[in-house]
Design a protein around this nucleic acid. Structure first.
Lengths: 233, 233
DNA sequence: CGAGGTATTGATGCCGGTCAAGCGTTGTGG
DNA sequence: CCACAACGCTTGACCGGCATCAATACCTCG
């Protein structure tokens, strides 16, 4: 694949997956002229809570976590963002410091896009603005659902839900194991519990033949049963 | 105050408090010609989760709760909305059924605005669209913070936070009691716990002289101490 | 092959959910 | 105006859920 093809936003396939598809050719050209492609290694921080961002990050490859440190010192993962998602758009839109930190869970390739090239189309291209607006409405709905789950469901229910989420959104490898290999601590930070309890709950699932593991890898064996757990049946 | 003055959106003071201030005179006139003012009694439901809304509700007076029923049968209050807030905008923007139910906590006066008069300016008035977008970005940030709190903080911490939120956002009466008199069950649904535990935690606060009560009314006595509790100190 | 990180298991005690009963308070009809 | 019903508030008792500390296996990378 030629370098040229990848390096121009106009030709970037990623664009088909997010609000950028509503941008005009001219706007994309501007963007391509000023973007900066970055390679980020697993574990590296893309930005930290409280930072002021000069632009947004468009994920071209790899998976990242968006998390926030609670006052009590534990991290909560609020979202997992992968290929096609844009990081930092919320802070750029509201001209504020970021509320969340972003960290690479795998080696990543991201494009940094200076905020001018977001702000300007927001003023002049209503199709783009509406696309962003709809996307944010979806995120808000999702966030409300998470609030209800966190407040009302048990760790067992939340873990069942997270496992299915991981399968549905990131897929499985050829042996049926979840493609995304999070550490136990990261899964615990998504579920919102301590690592030890997470492991215990996972062990219970294994004993009930709902999941199986191989090293850190996890495979869902009985999705319907997991679904029933989420529903509280 | 003349009926005429109140009944025209162009003259409505409420408008100064939300994104509608970005609308043009002509758009407001259209809106005023088609809106419908409704009086809603305490306890009545404005709309229910899963309903398809034909428009949005602009709160002119009174306070409402936005809640969602969890699978396990308990209600979670996600937001309290008062004068100047718009209900249902998320579902109208994403053309979906509502994700939350809205219920009046006091007698209310709301204006129902058919969605056409929201959708059209969203296409043609970028100032309005951007105002809505910024507002939604704020809501999303707030939601993320709530997720972290729900997942990581104790009932004691969350109650302390909710009490301060109630004081900061809805004020106190002339005796210093919280203006908004929620039932214990409603407070529990905001905090995300059972009514009994909520009452026990509140009782502890009383014994520690952090709050006092008179009937269902609650007064904060030592805000700084509550703040320390939230921070986990 | 050590060394440091990660996964797992045990033990312990507090936190929080639930059932049940008692105590106002309000409101409604006789 | 009282009686009683209905509802919300409060407290007790109980127990399972969850956090925390500690110790042990595992694993992976220099």
């Amino acid at each position: 694949m030629s370098k040229h093809e990848n390096s121009r936003c106009e030709n970037c396939i990623i664009r088909q997956m997010n609000s950028f598809k509503a941008l005009k050719k001219e706007e994309l050209k501007q963007m391509a002229d000023h973007k900066e492609t970055k390679v980020i290694k697993k574990g590296e921080i893309i930005f930290s809570e409280g930072e002021r961002l000069g632009g947004v990050f468009c994920v071209r490859n790899g998976i990242s976590k968006l998390s926030k440190m609670s006052d009590n010192g534990r991290d909560q993962i609020v979202k997992l963002a992968t290929k096609g998602e844009v990081l930092g758009h919320r802070s750029v839109i509201s001209s504020e410091a970021t509320n969340l930190s972003a960290t690479a869970l795998e080696d990543m390739e991201v494009c940094f896009i200076p905020k001018t090239h977001i702000e300007e189309p927001l003023q002049t291209n209503p199709v783009f603005t509406n696309a962003v607006l709809k996307h944010m409405a979806q995120e808000l709905k999702f966030a409300d659902d998470v609030i209800v789950n966190m407040a009302q469901k048990t760790v067992r229910q939340r873990l069942a839900e997270v496992l299915m989420y991981l399968e549905d959104n990131f897929g499985v490898d050829d042996e049926g194991y979840l493609y995304l290999q999070l550490s136990r601590a990261d899964v615990a930070d998504v579920v919102g519990t301590a690592t030890e309890l997470l492991i215990r709950t996972l062990t219970k699932f294994k004993k009930e033949d709902l999941v199986s593991t191989s090293g850190k890898r996890i495979k869902i064996e009985d999705k319907k049963a997991l679904y029933n757990i989420v529903e509280g049946i």
